[in-house]
Amino acid sequence: MLDIKNIHASINGKEVLKGLNLTFRPGEVHAIMGPNGSGKSTLAKVVAGHPEYQVTEGEIEYEVNFRKKDLKAMEAYERAREGIFLAFQYPVEVPGVSNIHLLHSAFNMVCKHQGVEEMSQGEFRKFIEKKCEMLELKPQFLDRSVNEGFSGGEKKKNEILQMAVLNPRVAVLDETDSGLDIDALKIVAGGINRLKNQENCIVLITHYQRLLQYVVPDYVHILSDGKIIKTGDKALALKLEEEGYDWLIKS
């Protein structure tokens, strides 16, 4: 569904991704691990279409509903409407805009784009309150300004809430587990598992094996210096936890 072929990407003239290949298929969970500065967040931003990152070489092919799309040629918002989702490592504050307003607007924009009927305010409120329960968020959470004054846990839960609303085909979660206590981690992981299905693909970018105990990956990829240097299954993550990256990078 998403084919990343020999991607080279740079920011401010500095090359960060240096010929990266990955294939994501529906129903799969991928974990991407790697040392700091290896290009994990860059990969996430390149897939989501951050305008400051330039793809200098390679292709990103995306297939949704049997239609092939050239992701590179699409703006970030078009990608979002076509089912690409990025959960931010550092969710951004949007002062004065209520959470429910953002969620509702985003939901309706995606519906409109995909030719599905939009929801009224009342309908959406009911729909979203159900999703909130899944993440153990109180309904009042919806009326606060987006990410403003949210705790670290609330911010990350809110990202998963947005994912639940947008119902993406490819969801890249950039360090969604960082900064979470164990209870919040379980709730977030539970949310991800509920949203996982045979039609979407979940990509977890993480430093820690911990999240992967709850959301079990089919593949674990090691990213180093802008390339995938090893791919394995969940056992690879465990080995990393014990031995670090040195054995991989030196060899």
Partner: peptide, 26 residues
């Protein structure tokens, strides 16, 4: 900020509606 714009874009807002959302909030 560019961060706010990108955040909203990645939620499906085009630049114009993202700005409008930010300014309205402000």
């Amino acid at each position: 900020s560019a961060d706010q714009l990108f955040y909203l874009e990645s939620r499906g807002f085009d630049v114009e509606s993202a700005i409008s959302l930010l300014v309205n909030g402000f």
